[in-house]
Design a protein around this nucleic acid. Structure first.
Lengths: 164, 164
DNA sequence: GCCAAATACTTGAAGTCTAAAGAAATCCGG
DNA sequence: CCGGATTTCTTTAGACTTCAAGTATTTGGC
């Protein structure tokens, strides 16, 4: 057995328990925070997390974004964005117009009302996040940023290996 | 202004941008991995992530779990678990029985088929996760585990402060 | 024992999400 | 400039999710 393991003559089931535990912890951590943010958004502003996220994307793009861009940025399906935008246009938070140069493309942007509401929510949202992470030192934050960036890169390369 | 800032006589808007960026990175990282796992589960086993997660919980509890326990562990609502279990019982992966000691309680457990199928999926799942994190050194993994544990604790204390 | 409170679960309405198929417009090789 | 490939978006079916309200059961104070 030791020989096998050293020579790699046969594939023994390797132990990947640590990676699995890391993944579960990452997931738990994210779900915990996501749940807190979700319920606070609902309580304080009666808005859902997906709507807030969509508005956050648009707040950074004053000239608007196409649905495809939003879809990529938010890492959700195209069809999902269609419905989400539908409801936000309906409620007066978003404007939507067909691109002049390409009639397939829909460009969406925040309305004045939408932007004002988002800014109010975002300011408070930022304090929630700060409170949630308040036990972390600045060094912890930097270190987490660094390691998560590395993990993200690793995951992306893994995805590339899979799909080509 | 400097005086104000030092004496804390007035509340200036503090900069929590780092924490916000950390949260966004955490979310991106998790979504990326979750998406990869989701599509692989679908491709290889035609199973959804929530079903896999539920079976994973039950695999660790040979004697079964109550719906409430599952709900807490998975951090999802009770109503959600009801539907999820419904479909897995339907497909023959889960057994469900009413507790003898408390007729409000439903105890669910994996069927023989369900357990066998899960074990097969879990083995492969573990290799996916290992591949996704393969650029991380063992030290990176340990460090991430430590920092995420700290972040989790911080988030939990934050939630406690909010709800009492 | 009785009854209010708490607990465990289900149901219902609305929203979010995916994958897959379809419609419309553009692109591009010939 | 034609026609197939590609891109962008919508639609559809089915699953998942939350919250809130409702049902059944147990618990605990009296």
């Amino acid at each position: 057995m030791i020989l096998d393991s050293e020579t790699k003559a046969v594939e023994l089931p390797e132990d990947h328990g640590d990676e699995l535990r890391l993944w579960l912890r990452l997931l738990t951590c994210t779900n915990l925070i996501e749940g807190a943010v979700r319920s606070r958004l609902r309580e304080r502003f009666e808005v859902t997390l997906p709507r807030f996220d969509l508005m956050a994307q648009l707040d950074r793009a004053p000239e608007g974004m196409t649905l495809s861009d939003v879809s990529k940025r938010m890492m959700v399906s195209n069809g999902n964005v269609t419905g989400l935008v539908e409801r936000l246009v309906e409620s007066g938070h978003l404007d939507r117009r067909t691109s002049d140069s390409d009639r397939r493309v829909q460009v969406i942007s925040l309305t004045k009302v939408g932007r004002a509401e988002f800014r109010k929510m975002a300011a408070e949202h930022e304090t929630w996040i700060a409170d949630i992470f308040s036990d972390l030192t600045p060094k912890d934050v930097r270190e987490l940023m660094r390691l998560l960036a590395k993990a993200k890169g690793s995951a992306q390369r893994s995805a590339t290996r899979r799909t080509g």
